[in-house]
């Protein structure tokens, strides 16, 4: 056990994966000599050389497309997309190639590619640096989508993503990059990544992932002061969705609030609400409520505090399912 930041935990995961498997290669813009704009790949080029920590030309489709070729050759590429909003130039390669080649080749060609994307808002950046594009990829068959929230999970789930024979879109909660915690390294659990009940409670189930989980924990403490007990679930894997863990909780509490930064329409919350309704209809005491960003382009940074689900909006969502408030629409909670 040692205390470390999320950035260092991710760095250690990459390092350990590269030591463990010499076919692991890293590709991305500025990841070599500079160590990445967030320093997640710091010092790795020095240790493993320029052929395993590859500074690439500035072309996202090129990065992902060459990763596909490397996977054909038997490599296990880990791609860094510098910021969420720069994922889109690579969209065709991700959706039409990375996601589909295992299916297209009838299982003869594996695509064990991990695409790391620092995502989400709250860091005061200009346009294209604060987006939450996870729903596009959860919607795409053939991809797995992970979104760790904690320092420990950043290490563990990145190791799991790299070890996975399927492609994984790995969303890193960049505004939590500097959080630190004691973590255990070296272990890579087998099997599918499940959701985790990170705080048990009786009154309302609150589901989030990535950067919002930190806020959910704050909400649970605040609610406790008012005598309301929240059960907090960190989704961790957005696809596959661990509906069993979610449903077990909602059957216990009868009420659910789903939180994410992306807008609500056709987002993860819509899918989660639907599946919970299908699995827990007879247990629900109120319709599922979503507390999310709005259906708008990500706003200028001086406006983002109004856009991101914060403590008050989450607690208002909780009040709505508890029928203590009628103002669901006012908080962007539907």
């Amino acid at each position: 056990m040692s205390r470390t930041t999320m950035i260092k935990a991710l760095n250690t995961a990459l390092r350990d994966a590269m030591v463990h498997d010499e076919k692991v290669v890293l590709l991305g813009e500025d990841i070599g000599t500079l160590g990445g704009v967030f320093r997640v790949t710091s010092e790795l080029k020095k240790e493993f050389g320029a052929q395993r920590v590859v500074d690439t030309p500035l072309a996202e489709s090129g990065i992902v497309g060459t990763a596909v070729g490397l996977a054909y050759r038997g490599f296990r590429p880990v791609v860094e997309i510098q910021f969420d909003g720069f994922t889109y130039p690579a969209f065709d390669q991700l959706v039409s190639q990375v996601a589909k080649l295992h299916y297209r080749s009838r299982g003869r060609v594996k695509m064990p590619i991990t695409v790391r994307i620092p995502y989400g808002g709250g860091i005061g950046s200009p346009e294209h640096h604060s987006e939450s594009p996870e729903a596009y990829f959860a919607h795409t068959a053939g991809l797995r989508v992970f979104a760790p929230s904690s320092v420990q999970d950043s290490y563990t789930m990145l190791r799991q993503a790299i070890a996975c024979d399927d492609p994984v879109i790995f969303f890193e909660p960049k505004r939590r990059y500097h959080e630190s915690a004691e973590i255990t390294t070296g272990q890579v659990p087998e099997g599918v990544v499940k959701a985790q009940v990170i705080r048990s409670g009786d009154d309302v189930t609150v589901i989030g992932y990535g950067p919002t989980v930190y806020t959910l924990n704050e909400a649970a403490l605040a609610a406790e002061d008012e005598g309301i007990s929240l059960e907090i679930i960190d989704l961790r894997s957005l696809d596959p969705l661990d509906i069993e863990t979610l449903a077990d909780s909602v059957k216990h509490t009868g009420k659910v609030v789903i939180v994410h930064e992306a807008g609500p329409t056709a987002g993860l919350g819509a899918e989660i609400a639907t599946q919970i309704t299908e699995h827990c209809f007879d247990y629900l005491e109120h319709a599922p409520v979503r507390v999310t960003g709005f259906d708008i382009p990500y706003p200028p940074s001086r406006l983002e505090k109004f856009h991101l689900p914060d403590l008050d909006r989450i607690l208002t969502g909780v009040d709505v399912v508890l029928r203590r408030s009628e103002s669901a629409h006012q908080v962007g909670a539907r």
Partner: peptide, 20 residues
């Protein structure tokens, strides 16, 4: 079938040949 996508796969495969 997607026009031109495979050119990048060829380039990436060749990078792999160089790396290994």
């Amino acid at each position: 079938i997607v026009i031109g996508s495979q050119a990048l796969h060829a380039a990436g495969y060749a990078m792999g040949i160089k790396f290994d």
